[in-house]
Design a protein around this nucleic acid. Structure first.
Lengths: 163, 163
DNA sequence: CTAAAATAGACAACGTGATTGACGAAAAGG
DNA sequence: CCTTTTCGTCAATCACGTTGTCTATTTTAG
């Protein structure tokens, strides 16, 4: 505890603030990204859809696989895919080699969201790096990576993001 | 999502990792806290309840007030209070000075959860400080505070935490 | 003082997103 | 082959939130 006196002697923030801050950070990034996306012609992308699209991936995937990647039931994944299909972000085609499977694939519009999301997130991260310093952002990421159990990287919670 | 772009982000993690890490950090803290609480006789506390109890506060509050603090409708707050009452964490008493109001107050059990939660969060934060260094944790908190709009500190999203 | 406005709480209907359970069709394996 | 898995879907249910409506009560204005 190399604590300097003169202001720094104050007690650290209460422990309960940390999760709050982490969540608020997450939340504000997501919110800003979707504000950007809305301006770029993707007003109907809900935050959860973005991650679902990511789970589809460039090579496509089945609903069951998407559910596994997202950590939700295949039924839930199926419903999400249905919505995504209705919005024109994915298409479903029968797998000619396996009569059970229906491959979900990104449409051009779906790829566009993904590309714009990636750009948006990069832009947001760059803004943080500009405000805080690139090293601080990198440190934050490193520290979080260190403290977060590997399996917690999953996006398995259901409906956190609701704008 | 992660396009290799020569320009902006060098070998830094792709921008989309930051929100993921923030969420995973939040999530793992919440999960661990509730694991601890479960071991301490509070297995039925859902994450959302903890924050609702905090909104009640030591002095008690009305359902409407709780709703305001949590950023949800008074009806939603009322339902939560009902559950909390059923679990024995709060009690509702008529306000003798205002026939419309019913004051929600923490029971001893409710106070106990709050105390144990605060202790648990402090313990968790201490563990992070031990692993990362106190200064790094403090830096993370400071940086997040700097980037997060003041109004984003609210816990107003509905169902993110589901264990 | 009384009429109007605001507030508290409750009830109902509904929306969203998840879950479990069941089932038929297709594939895989002993 | 016949049994076990797996895929997709239907249906019922749950959790948690929303808006709208209604009554009782308090506050505020005229």
């Amino acid at each position: 505890m190399a604590e300097r006196r003169g202001g720094a002697a104050r007690e650290d923030g209460a422990g309960f603030e940390l999760p709050l801050l982490l969540f608020a950070g997450f939340r504000s990034l997501i919110d800003e990204l979707h504000r950007d996306l809305a301006e770029q012609g993707h007003a109907d992308v809900r935050p959860a859809y973005g991650y679902a699209l990511q789970a589809v991936g460039r090579d496509g995937a089945t609903a069951s696989e998407i559910g596994r990647r997202l950590g939700v039931s295949k039924q839930a994944a199926g419903k999400t895919v249905e919505k995504l299909e209705g919005l024109g972000y994915v298409e479903r085609v029968d797998d000619p080699r396996d009569g059970r499977r229906k491959l979900v694939r990104l449409t051009a519009r779906g790829v566009d969201v993904l590309v714009r999301s990636a750009e948006g997130f990069d832009r947001l991260r760059a803004r943080w790096a500009e405000a805080l310093g690139a090293d601080r952002v990198r440190a934050m990421e490193d520290d979080l990576r260190a403290m977060v159990p590997a399996d917690a990287l999953r996006l398995d919670a259901p409906g956190w993001f609701n704008d």
